[in-house]
Amino acid sequence: MAEGWREVADARSRPWDRPRVRATGARGVWWGALLAVVVVVLLLGAGVGTQRADFSQAFLPPSAEHPFGTDQAGRDLLARSLAGARVSLLVGLVAALVSSVVGVVVGGLAGSLASRGGGVVDGVLMRLVDAVNALPHLVLGIVIVALLGPSLSSVILSVALTHWTTTARIVRAELLALQHVGFVEAAVGAGAGRWWVLSRHLLAHVAGRVLLATVLMVPHAIMHESALSFLGLGLPDDQASLGTIIEQSRTAVLAGHWWPAVLPGLLLVALSLAVFALAERLRPVSRGRA
């Protein structure tokens, strides 16, 4: 800068002008991706064979040998928690994918029909979205699992059937909003047909949003699954998820054994936060900025 420039003495004291939270750049994306890969590899690689029951070893507090301690059956809680986290993540991913597929189909149908005489279909689909949203998801999940019987597939179904509405709304809103955005109108004005606009402009935009919504849904799905498992409506002991492990620790807590509840729970929180962080890194990418 040339001579004589100075900063206004009290410039930094404006209430609205505190240092901005820095937007994460391209490097942040790679850190997020790396983090996610590490989490997944760790979970997939965690040994399952170490979960041997040995009742003489029950409720050992955390130590070097058992960093998470042992549970009521003397099983190593770290190995069990990692295996449980893997189940939780798997359920979360599959459920998020299934609900995204349902959401894209419903939202895409509603959004593309809304603008051309298909208003009735759009209306019915959106009322359906309202109706599903009008029910507390956990209660709906409880009803579904109760009626279908507890199993991996009914848990996934229960999550997917309650969570597709978010994606459906996003896809529909995005399609409708893009209809009047300058570059779409310009393409239409230049003689583009629906297929041209859809394949060359809309898909790329919607795909970014859907990807983000799907990733953001994973922690929701994990929460939902662990809540069901905690209520005893989720996964059985041999497929224990983190929710199941925490459920089994309830009586132990009353006896003063804190580790079977606290440590697997911390892992659950960490898992959700890691996926959230990944989603935050994906946010700029989903808007078309690297």
Binding site: V181, A186, V188, G189, A190
Partner: peptide, 20 residues
């Protein structure tokens, strides 16, 4: 399409005018 091409429109805000 042939009729649409006969009229060109330049919107006020260019930021949305091209696919980002």
């Amino acid at each position: 399409p042939a009729v649409r091409r006969r009229v060109a429109f330049v919107p006020q805000d260019p930021r949305q005018g091209v696919d980002p």
